[in-house]
Design a protein around this nucleic acid. Structure first.
Lengths: 195, 195, 195, 195
DNA sequence: CATGAATGAGCATTCATTCAT
DNA sequence: AATGAATGAATGCTCATTCAT
């Protein structure tokens, strides 16, 4: 069956697979091309260079990833509920895409400083979502107002990231989505304003 | 002045410097050898291969790092105090050794999966320290007993790591030791048992 | 304004420009096609391959070049006058077409042996013109009869070519047409039969 | 028999052979290394990059080439004799080293502008030798004093170069050293001061 | 113990040419 | 006739590791 997906997406999907399976350093352009079913040279019609594949990959995948989290946290929810949904959706998405989980948690981190800067700018949008929920929680007097917003964001993201990384390194042998509730409670526990 | 440090340590110190200054991927064995003041071949009398330099580096440096944290958390302290001291000592040590901070937070993460597994086994000891403090807190009924110990450890380590990484990526432009108190409070707030 | 020149000529003119501006090795077929305002594939409807563009270019341009020299050396002139006109016309034509000068003197020489052999067969006609003038000079007893005709031709062509190349390499910073008279005198001086 | 020549010279000699036999564009570094009996990487211990091999090759070979011409034109000779010896020595040397002749007359000319600039600066010394002989001839009132020194140099070098190139392109099917006398006479004929 | 010259596997990228439309 | 997306062969250079001295 001939691939009919636009080549750009075809290549990105191939890259995720190849990197997840072979690791970042064993993922030659030619291997990605082969998996995508295109010639080596075709890669360069759609991407500036190898690094551009990785940046684009991250942008595409994280774009969808973050959008889903944004649309899952609707206006009717309380800030705490939003955080719960954020954790849940984060875990679910990685749970459903094994390759993506490996790539984002392990492989893409071994890229050079330049690439990681670009990756961070993509992550910025995710951090903004967290910031907004936290801000809302404080405004609505659900969260304590004596917290350092930036540190709280780092706690939330750092915790989620560490939990996911541990899960991936344990070769995803347990169901991470079942931890969402606990992780959420643990995080919120420290944020709630006491009467 | 001729170097009199044993060559093993000489090479490890050179590696930290070279990696911090040039980045992981620009740190060739020959560059490390030159900085250490030995011949390229000499490296291989003390280390199995390049990866072994990095693993040893991490073991040596983290060994001291963790020992200091262990000895700073004495038996007279409460679990919460111990956590505070842990955060403080963590921040202080990286604050005092710029090279080490860059290497552990940024450069060593670009290593391959294999190397990072070995690094994780070194980190295990640190995580054990955290686990013990948490366990003690629960036992002494200071921390809630309905928490998931493993997740709490991931929250503590994930948060500290994220805070430090942010600081290093911001080129250490602020004094991270001043954040120790807040980070500690933020973490403990979620752990404390309520009356 | 739409190009109305036949595509064949359009492409050759584009090639001269592109090669003169970018150098031989940076003159990709796609760049020539773009300059000519045609698609890459169209090139191959008019030329067998890239080398064929260059050979055709040289044939076309040198065809005109040599024709002009032939028609400038009329039957009424003495052999020495003909040589003077030959040098003059040679210099003038390259002087008037900067791109052509760069391409013939510098860029086309970086082509491979095969291409240069073909170029030489184009030059053959020019060398014939020289031969004929020399022959006439000897026949008319203006030039010495103890000269080696082939060597004299090599002296004439070698000198003219070297003078032009020096001029192009000096970025044409002086008026080469002003040297025609001197070059001619210098050449003829060695040819003239002494009383 | 193990090669004992210093590797630097070994590689240069291999390069001359390989380029003469395969042409400039088919002379991969790996091919040169193989011929020199060293590993590819070894090349880069002695040369900065591929271009550096070619520049060094030209410098080394032309260095000797020019030195021989210089020492053959001794102080006891007249300017005209010096020119004769120059032509003779030029022809003889290329006659004795087929590979070198092919490389200097054909292959090295297809290099890029950068390389040719460097080659020209090596040639400068040769042109200086010519200039000096011409100058001496004029000073001693053997050559006419109304000649343009620069143009004369271009005539001498252009002629010699053209004669040699024709010989090489004719696959050296005749003995070029036998032409030295004639070429010399032809050149000097135009230079001599008439009584 | 120490040296450092030598090794050689490994890979991103370019670009002339083709061919389905 | 014209297009231009797709092809895939081809190569200079780096650097971890070895080993003769």
């Amino acid at each position: 069956m001939k691939q009919t997906k636009p080549k750009y997406r075809q290549i990105i999907d191939a890259a995720v697979e190849v990197i997840a399976e072979n690791g970042y350093h064993s993922s030659q352009v030619s291997k990605i091309a082969k998996r995508a079913g295109v010639a080596d040279g075709t890669i360069y019609l759609y991407f500036k260079n190898k690094e551009d594949i990785l940046v684009s990959l991250f942008q595409e995948k994280m774009g969808v990833f973050i959008e889903r989290i944004e649309s899952a946290t609707t206006s009717r929810q309380t800030p705490s509920e939003k955080l719960r949904v954020l954790v849940e959706t984060h875990f679910e998405q990685l749970s459903e895409d094994h390759h993506l989980a490996v790539v984002t948690q392990l492989e893409l981190r071994q890229s050079n400083k330049m690439l990681r800067m670009k990756i961070n700018s993509v992550l910025k949008k995710y951090l903004d979502v967290i910031d907004e929920i936290v801000e809302e929680g404080i405004r609505e007097e659900v969260f304590r107002d004596n917290i350092n917003r930036k540190l709280v964001r780092q706690l939330i993201f750092g915790t989620i990231d560490e939990v996911v990384t541990n899960w991936v390194m344990k070769e995803e042998r347990y169901d991470i989505t079942k931890q969402a509730k606990e992780v959420h409670e643990m995080i919120v526990e420290g944020l709630l304003r006491r009467p």
